[in-house]
């Protein structure tokens, strides 16, 4: 009786674990570059910088902001973001775009800008 119970519990835990791992695979998004993103053709996130020598465009009626960015491997990519230009876009040293590659365009659903944080103290700042 007791043995049976443990087998039952063990099997239950195993099934749970397997489902968990499977759902992990579905819900995780990799940090990667544009080249890999093209191969994977699934949702990924890419870190990079704004290629400011190219023009940007915001289409009011469609609420789409378009720009060029470079990933860490210096690959240039045209990015179409669904939403307005984030306000810290021009000053962010780098940012992360979340999305996938469609033909030649990276369609981003989210732009996460990393800001030069003022939160950590720098001794220079109070010596002036």
């Amino acid at each position: 009786m007791n043995m049976k119970k443990y087998i039952f519990i063990g099997a239950f835990a195993l099934i749970f674990l397997v489902i968990m791992l499977l759902s992990f695979n579905r819900s995780t998004i990799e940090y990667t570059d544009f080249e890999t993103a093209r191969r994977l053709s699934k949702k990924v996130q890419v870190v990079g910088t704004w290629a400011k020598e190219y023009p940007t465009n915001y289409d009011i009626s469609k609420n789409i902001f378009e720009f060029f960015m470079r990933d860490k491997k210096d690959k240039l990519m045209f990015v179409r973001f669904i939403g307005p230009q984030p306000n810290n876009f021009t000053i962010a040293p780098e940012f992360v775009v979340k999305g996938y590659i469609q033909d030649t365009v990276f369609v981003a659903s989210q732009i996460i800008t990393k800001c030069p944080s003022k939160y950590e103290a720098e001794p220079e700042s109070f010596q002036k």
Binding site: S23, F24, R26, S27, T28, I29, E30, Y31, Q45
Partner: peptide, 23 residues
């Protein structure tokens, strides 16, 4: 997850909120 990835040295991936919603 970030700690586990750090620990086993796996590639860093982000988890979408959909993971929790599904469960």
């Amino acid at each position: 997850l970030p700690i586990i990835q750090n620990f086993i040295g796996a590639k860093k991936v982000a988890l979408e909120p959909s993971f929790y919603n599904q469960w």
